[in-house]
Amino acid sequence: MTLVFTPRPGSAPLTSMVAAQARMEARLLLRNGEQLLLALVIPVLVLVGLQQADGLLDLGPGRRIDVLTPGVLALVVLSTGFTSVAISTGFERRHGLLKRLGATPLPRSALLAGKVGAVLIVEAFQLTLISAIALGLGWQPRGGVQALLSVVGLVLAGTAAFVGLALLMAGTLRADTTLAAANLVYLLLLAGGGVIVPFDRYPASVQPVMELLPTGALAEGLRDVLDGAAVGLGHVAILLAWTVVAATLAARTFRWE
């Protein structure tokens, strides 16, 4: 086929632009070794390791794997929704990718939609894999279809909050600072954010703070619904509040270059 440069400009349909952007970003997330470590290896190690090391960490009453699995699912949402997005967006900014995409027909809103779509694609892989491993280890989720729908709702709300926070960080800090800060926040929340260890194992004085953290709200919400309880509106409200605050601040402060 010969090249015809005669002008024939035009944008692709919005939906296909969003889909293209989501596919592209998901491919790149899955291709990146460090991100994959964060996204899969650490959650699997936490799941298998803590399941085996019985005396190491007191997870409270209930079957150990049933307590552990919802927390690891929340950890996956944290690592992909927050840490991966913050780091990759920080470097996209530094490498002029965001600037360059700004000169294409892709609107900013479609870029964000594509980013969220990529995160959801990757999370779907991760959550399926972690659930399969957990089931193999004897996990017995309760609540049936109702619980599954609640999990989807909580994961969506949690992803929205984490992506908002990631963009707030990546849009204002330098790329290397974002890299360090996003990993630090991940570790801090993993240890003290109520992700893996249920709230009632923590001192009473810090429990109210934990409930207000997005990690705490997501993990505790997942533990409740996978134990057969109805979805806690308080948890959903906290996640939505984080989403609104983070998205508003990010929209105001985000620098594309």
Binding site: M1, L3, F5, R8, P9, A12, M17, P105
Partner: peptide, 12 residues
Amino acid sequence: SLHAHPLDIPAL
């Protein structure tokens, strides 16, 4: 893929 009538990629 963001354009409506892009050039032929292999040729470009």
